[in-house]
């Protein structure tokens, strides 16, 4: 079952790649996309666990996580739009009213 190893490694790399993307990106919407990648990495482990354990629960959890991700994306995009309302194009590092 080398497939499990491959998928587990893929999920870890995806998680780190997504995290790197959140760090590198300066556009709020792009940041949110990278977060979606990280969420997918988590879901992948759940599905993989379901297969490894021979247990349906993991897939059911993954479905619930999809719902969480949808809620997350909706609110995140809304907040990003609020940021875009004033400045274009938005650099997430630019607004710095709160600091120090």
């Amino acid at each position: 079952m080398t497939a499990n190893i491959v998928v587990l490694a893929t999920s870890a790399i995806l998680f780190s790649t997504g995290a790197t993307g959140v760090m590198l990106r300066r556009n709020p919407v792009a940041m949110l996309m990278c977060i979606e990648i990280m969420l997918n990495a988590g879901n992948l482990v759940l599905v993989l666990g379901s297969r490894a354990r021979g247990n349906d629960a993991g897939q059911a959890i993954a479905l619930i996580v999809l719902v969480i991700a949808a809620a997350e994306a909706v609110v995140g995009l809304g907040l990003a739009l609020v940021l875009f309302h004033r400045r274009e194009p938005v650099d997430v590092d630019e607004p710095r009213a709160v600091q120090g």
Partner: peptide
């Protein structure tokens, strides 16, 4: 579910938002 929710809904919403943004969401 992934197809419907992610590809079908979330990514499309992202696409809308990006398209709505003034300069196409160009990034520095």
């Amino acid at each position: 579910g992934q197809l419907l929710i992610y590809s079908g809904a979330i990514v499309v919403v992202f696409l809308f938002v990006v398209a709505l943004l003034p300069p196409g969401g160009r990034e520095l």
